[in-house]
Design a protein around this nucleic acid. Structure first.
Lengths: 345, 345
DNA sequence: CTGAAAGCGCTAACAT
DNA sequence: ATGTTAGCGCTTTCAG
């Protein structure tokens, strides 16, 4: 960085005080309109650039919201970001995106970094390996509003925005059972994480309600990437399942590919059900049945909740922490229609 | 934000000066090891959190690199980000990601915002609608290093990291011709943007070298989203093409879906060739032939180039701007194998 | 409507 | 090895 034009330079040139320049640039109505215009013109002419750092330091607020994500590379997350941005842009807040690549360590570092940068609030989806939210206590202590979404700690006392993962898991499984499936394999990720555990519990409950015995050999936990999904699928095929319920559309697509390689027909021989409603779901053959995850809405709600908290904080009030459940929807396409295939074609 | 612990509070408690505390926290070796340890311990005990804002203002550098993207939702961009992060983390630089959603206006606002936040450097992939780089002149004037990658302005005098889009377009087209295709349709995006124009020129050149007359009715420009791709495909089908060369894997997948709905076999009736090597390419049926875009490498090279510039700047030197071309690769899968289908099965 | 002075929290020159 | 002093660039009392 080299010598920058400051408000003092503008003030000198115009023979007025820096205070007036500052106010003029911020369109403070107390300043004469003509003076204001002159200030803006001179600023532009001299190539002045506002120094956000200095301003933020002085104002003790950054008008910036930190976003802590577990990953950025998914349709769902992109939708959430779009929703968050939509709400925060309206309120003139910037966002600072960080992602942990599912590493709890990196998440802790990011949380600390954002605190040091003095964000005014935080929106968080936890990394897979984060088992608690102790690293957010500095935020709680300072009363910096935090909203968790999707990947949360159920026991934690904080504001959460989620979908009803239990019901989604239940509905997906019940649908497969209604299609005549009796041996439903389940591929999912770390059951310590709420979203996966709840879906799993829904899966088990649907089996039970339909008098199908749960078998743990039919469940595989992996990281849902390509290699591990292939391995899990092959492993589970030894159990001769007639359906797969997989908590990721990408992994479900990989699974279908594996099934095709084994010359198994989907859904005739084996039905497949995904999760998330990624764009790829209706580009593959057969098109994938899945659960729609309303990312944009989730982002909007999380951001709105955060803004509420920030505004209340200014009046020294506090919003009661609550859990908000966003509606989600089951989407039936071909991959799961073992019985009703023709009906839907 | 409420009352925070500062280095003065620590200094008071320990009966030493704030300077010593500052140096101690930064592990300055000039400070006695014992004092240093005491400072760290007290800081932790008092719940001290470093104020990056104040530090940056004082140091006149933020150790932060701004990233200006046209979009975040693609495998390619995620790979680039991973590459950039890998290099910058090693140098202890933070990154500040912004995206323009292809809007030139938003890009200008983002560029200004990042300048105001005093980033030490910038890595940029231009929005579709950005026709010049005038909005970066404040950076150039201040000698803040900027590196452009992928989506660039060819004429602009600056550092660029690209792939050889012309050759990629040429090779894809030549491959389709070698497979016996004679009427190759081309779906792409705004030809004002280098990446699309170069591929288009490569396409034309390959036709010419193979004595196939270029027909502009076989080319459709659209935004490559689902709706417009469907429309473009249907429009082009009226020309009875025997191949589609589409500059996006997602759009190519959509195209294949449309072809299937028309009961056209891919590649037997119509061959399809994509671009980017997205993960979805080998999940669809048939698997998609494409061009591999080495995102991670591109991100690494861009970040390394930027670091070089930043380091040279400290010695008041300047790196000569150059264009770096990253190698890319043609990937043949089933979707384009009109002739050699069996050979590869 | 405008200005003077102080200070946000930190670090770097310049002492000692 | 530690301290004194000043200042990064802005905004905000308080005063006029």
């Amino acid at each position: 960085m080299q010598k920058e034009i400051t408000i003092y330079d503008i003030a000198d040139k115009l023979g007025i005080s820096a205070t007036t320049v500052s106010r003029g640039l911020n369109d403070n109505p107390r300043i004469n309109k003509k003076t204001r215009e002159k200030i803006h013109a001179t600023a532009k002419e001299m190539g002045y650039q506002h120094n956000t750092l200095a301003s933020n330091l002085r104002k003790q607020q950054t008008k910036t919201i930190g976003i802590l994500l577990h990953e950025v590379n998914s349709n769902f997350i992109t939708s959430v970001l779009a929703g968050i941005e939509k709400v925060l842009a309206k309120e003139h807040y910037d966002i600072l995106i960080t992602h942990s690549a599912e590493s709890g360590e990196k998440e802790i570092a990011n949380a600390k970094n954002l605190l040091n940068k003095r964000v005014d609030g935080l929106i968080v989806s936890l990394a897979l390996s984060s088992k608690n939210i102790d690293h957010f206590t500095p935020y709680f202590e300072r009363k910096i509003p935090v909203v968790f979404f999707d990947r949360i700690i159920p026991e934690a006392d904080c504001t959460k925005v989620v979908i009803d993962n239990f019901n989604c898991g239940y509905n997906a499984t019940a649908h497969l059972i209604a299609q005549g499936c009796k041996k439903i394999a389940h591929i999912t990720a770390d059951l310590a994480r709420n979203v996966y555990n709840d879906r799993f519990l829904g899966y088990k409950k649907a089996l039970k309600n339909n008098k199908i015995t749960f078998k743990k050999e039919l469940v595989k936990v992996c990281n849902l990437d390509k290699a591990e999904t292939i391995a899990a699928t092959n492993e589970l095929l030894k159990q001769k399942p007639d359906a797969f319920f997989i908590t990721s559309d990408f992994a479900a697509a990989v699974c279908i590919e594996v099934l095709h390689e084994h010359n198994l027909r989907v859904p005739k021989d084996i039905a497949v059900f995904g999760f998330n409603n990624d764009t790829l779901g209706d580009l593959i053959t057969p098109k994938l049945s899945t659960i729609d995850y309303p990312g944009i809405l989730m982002g909007e709600v999380a951001a709105e909740e955060l803004m509420k908290k920030i505004k209340l904080k200014k009046n020294n009030k506090k919003l009661i922490d609550q859990t908000i459940t966003i509606p989600s929807e089951i989407i039936i396409r071909q991959s799961s229609l073992k019985k009703d295939y023709k009906k839907y074609q």
